[in-house]
Amino acid sequence: MTNAIAPTNSAHAIPGSSARAGRGSIKMSARAVNVHYGATHAVKDAVLDISINEVTALIGPSGCGKSTLLRCFNRMNDDIVGCRVTGDIRLDGEPINDSEMDVVELRARVGMVFQKPYPFPKSIEENIAYGPRIHGLAKKGMELDAIVERSLQRAGLWDEVRDRLGSPANSLSGGQQQRLCIARALAVDPEVILMDEPCSALDPIATAKVEELIDELRGGYAIAIVTHNLQQAARISQKTAFFHMGQLIEYGPTSEIFTNPKVQKTNDYITGRYG
């Protein structure tokens, strides 16, 4: 694993750090993470940090394990039959795979945005209000209204939907639906946002809006994004991790990965000569 970040305990020594800590502080860390789907070894001894105020891009060919690893950060793999996750993953220094960890609370702190936008078959407003309501974040209607407005504003959608909050979410365009899903994730006040190819189903204009949004959100969150669009990784991320056949091959500042990768395999992949 040449040039990959070295497994250290430093990440584990920052208990209590929060999303408001300085840029580059490690928010989540993965050490020696292995994921098996039955007999398939999908992620091999992965080491990765997700830092505050940074976008970490996970790139690599299909089947390299990047989405599988991403899902480890909020235990989405728990729901997959036959999936076994080992290793050490921490949020603010606390192991998230401990039995004491409340998975519902974890997923509120570590939100997820998927490839295709799946709004609930409800109104725009209800899509946003649902999470805060079940998490008890708002007791009064006015508080909930404020959360809805704030979340939609953060997602850059408020001006487009403020006059039709009661309309079905499915009436929005694909790009708007994806930003709605981002707003829905923001509504429960997460600290980390995981994104699994959030723009792959969007046209270039909608993609540009989501990319701008990600860049803005970076100021308040730690973000990790899986993308097949290498230019997107180059545009929006500060750190890039390249995976190949379940292994982290190279991790470093995006500007270095895309101008001077240290590992030949990384160079071959990002220049399209891999495989």
Binding site: L230, A234, F258, T259, N260, P261, N267, I270, T271
Partner: peptide, 9 residues
């Protein structure tokens, strides 16, 4: 082609 890395250099 949006070259990167060695190609870009």
């Amino acid at each position: 082609n949006a070259p990167v890395a060695g190609d870009l250099r």
